[in-house]
Amino acid sequence: MADIAIRARNVTLTLGTTEILKGIDLDIGQGESVAILGPSGSGKSSLMAILSGLERASAGDVAVAGVQLASLDEDALARARRGRIGIVLQSFHLLPTMTALENVAVPLELNGQAGDAFAAAARELEAVGLGHRLDHYPAQLSGGEQQRVAIARAVAPGPRILFADEPTGNLDGATGAKIIDLLFDRRRAAAATLVIITHDPELAARCDRIVEMRDGLLVADRRAAA
């Protein structure tokens, strides 16, 4: 079996009195592309948050890219994300006071690659078709362009795992489709494992594997139709 990129065992998450995740077991192999599909409120974004180290599970084990996340505090989780995990979010979440180039350079600088961060960032932006918008601020970019910057930022440090949470949620159909193509293209170039959160079955079908969630539980796990 290929190396396991993500291993989750009996992961639960309780916020207040609400059980968000009720015991998730999941293995994702290195290089796989997995769609986590489910209706709104099924817990898929919360699962992604735990797997990407943005949230700590209430119970259970999570190992991502060889690192046990359950015992890490917040700072350790942040360090664990550097260079290992890239995240693309629905609302892009670019730093508004930094240019496209600077936004992409930030994770490289945080990962100790300050020396050639800007050169590497420029290359990534070129690869997503924004070589001519390096010095533009997010407010000067369209939604699609902002998401492309977000993709470049996620991919730039060469992460082993890419997470994307509803990456086309705030985009129109045509733009969204281009973004998905770009996401898969860049993921392939980085040879990264891809985990996409979506409620769109068509998008899910583009992945190697589809995991379905409902009410905080995994209810199905199947290979996507060829």
């Binding site: 943005l54 917040e74 700072d75 942040a78 360090r79 550097r82 260079g83 730093l95 006071t97």
Partner: peptide, 19 residues
Amino acid sequence: QARSFDSVILKTLGATRGQ
């Protein structure tokens, strides 16, 4: 609000609380 936004993004990208 703006600073919270920046703080969350930076943490997502790997910045520690100290940073």
